[in-house]
C-alpha cells in the first residue's frame, strides 16, 4: 500500500514537471512582446531592453525554463508585469475560491448523480432506468459556461434569487455561499449526468459478480447488498474516471468564473491572457496543474483504500 502510494506520488511529480516545461514553452512561443505590453506603447527601446534583462527574457529559452522551475521550487512564481506584485500572492489568494467552487460543484453533482445511478441500476430496463438515462445523457453534453450564462440570466437577472457577480463579502459566510450557488450549480450539472451514467454501469457490472449471489444466498436484503457491499466496489472505477475528469472540471471553472466575474484562478488566467501577462498566466496554470495532479493522487489513494488488490499489484 505504502509503496503503491509512493509510486503514484512520484508519478504525479513527474507529470507536474513535464507539464510545467510544456506550458512554459507554449506560453513563450505566443507572439507579442511582453516588454512592449508591460511598459506601454510609449516606452523607448532602451526601457524595453532593460525590462527584458530584468525579467530574464533576454536569456536562452532553456535557461529561462530551468530558472523558472528552480524558482518555482522555492515558491517564487515570478512578478506580475503590470502591478509588480509577486505572482505567488495573486495565485494563492485566488486558489481557495477556485478549489471551493470545484469541490462544491463535484460534491453536489455526486450527491445527486450517485443515487440516480444506483436507482437506475437496481431497476434496469424499466421506465425509471430509461428516464434517468435520458436525463443524464442530455445534461452530459451541456458545457459549464453555457449553463452559467443561462443560470445567470434566469436566477440572477430575471428572478433575482442569487447575486450575479463576485464571490461575496470576505468574512460573511452566508453571503459567500449565496454567491457560490449559481457557479457551483453551473459546473456540476453536466457531472450529475456523467456520474449517474458511470455509477449505473459500474453497479450493474458489480451486481453481476458471483459474490453478490453469495450475499443473497445468505438472505441479505437486496437493498443492503447494493448499498453496503456493491457500491464500495462499484465506485472504484467511477473515482478513477472522476480523478481524470477533474481537468475538465477545472477548465469549466475557468469559464464559469469569467461569466460570474468571480475572482479565482480562472479569472486570473483569463485576464492574464488578455494582457499577455505571462508570469501571472503561467502561475495560474501551474497551480491548476498542481491541483489536477493532487486530485489524481487523492483518487488513487481512495481507490487503494477501497480495493486492496490494486494496491498490492502496485
Amino acid at each position: 500500500m505504502t509503496t503503491y502510494l509512493l509510486r503514484r506520488f512520484a508519478l504525479g511529480l513527474c507529470v507536474l514537471i513535464v507539464s510545467m516545461l510544456l506550458l512554459f514553452v507554449l506560453i513563450y512561443a505566443v507572439p507579442g512582446d511582453p516588454a512592449a505590453i508591460a511598459l506601454g506603447p510609449r516606452a523607448s527601446e532602451a526601457q524595453k531592453a532593460f525590462f527584458r534583462e530584468q525579467m530574464g527574457l533576454d536569456q536562452p529559452l532553456a535557461m529561462q525554463a530551468a530558472s523558472f522551475l528552480w524558482n518555482l521550487l522555492h515558491g517564487d512564481f515570478g512578478t506580475d508585469i503590470l502591478s509588480q506584485r509577486p505572482v505567488a500572492d495573486l495565485v494563492f489568494a485566488a486558489l481557495p475560491r477556485t478549489v471551493t467552487l470545484a469541490v462544491v460543484g463535484v460534491i453536489w453533482a455526486a450527491a445527486i448523480g450517485t443515487p440516480l445511478g444506483i436507482w437506475a441500476a437496481l431497476r434496469p430496463n424499466t421506465f425509471i432506468d430509461w428516464l434517468i438515462g435520458v436525463i443524464s445523457t442530455s445534461v452530459v453534453a451541456l458545457p459549464a459556461f453555457l449553463m452559467a450564462i443561462y443560470a445567470l440570466i434566469l436566477f440572477a437577472v430575471m428572478l433575482n434569487w442569487f447575486p450575479a457577480i463576485g464571490a461575496g463579502e470576505p468574512g460573511d459566510l452566508l453571503d459567500q455561499l449565496h454567491h457560490l450557488a449559481l457557479p457551483a450549480f453551473a459546473i456540476g450539472v453536466a457531472w450529475v449526468g456523467y456520474i449517474a451514467r458511470l455509477v449505473r454501469v459500474s453497479m450493474l457490472e458489480t451486481l453481476a459478480q458471483p459474490h453478490v449471489r453469495t450475499y443473497r444466498s445468505f438472505g441479505v436484503s437486496d437493498l443492503r447488498i447494493a448499498l453496503r457491499y456493491v457500491l464500495p466496489i462499484a465506485v472504484v472505477p467511477v473515482i478513477s474516471v472522476l480523478g481524470v475528469g477533474i481537468g475538465n472540471l477545472l477548465s469549466g471553472a475557468v469559464l464559469v468564473e469569467v461569466v460570474f466575474s468571480r475572482p479565482g484562478l480562472g479569472s486570473l488566467a483569463y485576464d492574464a491572457v488578455l494582457s499577455r501577462n505571462f508570469p501571472v498566466l503561467l502561475g495560474a496554470v501551474v497551480v491548476t496543474t498542481g491541483l489536477y495532479v493532487l486530485a489524481n493522487f487523492l483518487a488513487d489513494a481512495l481507490i487503494a483504500y477501497l480495493d486492496p488488490r490494486l494496491a498490492e499489484k502496485g
Binding site: 458471483p210 459474490h211 453469495t214 450475499y215 466496489i233 480495493d307 486492496p308 488488490r309
Partner: peptide, 9 residues
Amino acid sequence: DPFTALNPV
C-alpha cells in the same frame, strides 16, 4: 467456485 464466491475487497 470458491475463487469468486467471496467479496474480493
